[in-house]
Nucleic acid binder design. Structure first.
Length: 129
DNA sequence: ACGCTGACTATTA
DNA sequence: CTAATAGCCAGCG
């Protein structure tokens, strides 16, 4: 079955020139793009960087739209607080997320990031917020 | 327009 | 230790 497209997203993907979209999603995308290669972060960390750590869920939801945004957002570098690839099932293929991480030097075993605490990249700290 | 769901997290039992 | 619950906010039916 072909991927189900969300009409709303399609319309939003096209933004008029001169109009800056400062939606919560855009902020998430920006932070996510700052994640260095070989590093990972958590939804809560990004949410905290935006000042809405209580809305970690929205970060995950925003990632859902990351694929339609250009440049592409490394959503595979964003995992949950436990270091588990909770969002792998939302990729084109569940194995894609792990594959990308391993390709960047991040070991992934049993859908979990190895040495997650070491690989953890804190946007709040790195961005100096 | 109302209600449910969800790629999370922290707290309580 | 693990399991269940509440809080958060935007999108879809």
């Amino acid at each position: 079955m072909p991927p189900k497209k969300i009409a709303s997203e399609k319309l939003k993907s096209v933004k008029p020139s001169g109009k800056k979209d400062e939606s919560f999603f855009e902020l998430v995308f920006e932070v996510a793009r700052q994640i260095p290669k070989g590093r990972v972060t958590s939804y809560g960390a990004i949410a905290a960087a935006l000042g809405t750590k209580l809305s970690a869920r929205m970060v995950g939801w925003a990632m859902n739209g990351s694929f339609r945004v250009r440049p592409k957002v490394p959503a595979h570098r964003v995992v949950n607080r436990n270091g588990m690839l909770s969002g792998k099932m939302h990729f084109a293929y569940p194995e894609q997320m792990q594959e990308l991480l391993e390709k960047e030097g991040v070991q992934v075993i049993d859908d979990k990031v190895v040495d997650f605490e070491k690989r953890f990249w804190d946007p709040v700290k790195e961005l100096g917020l």
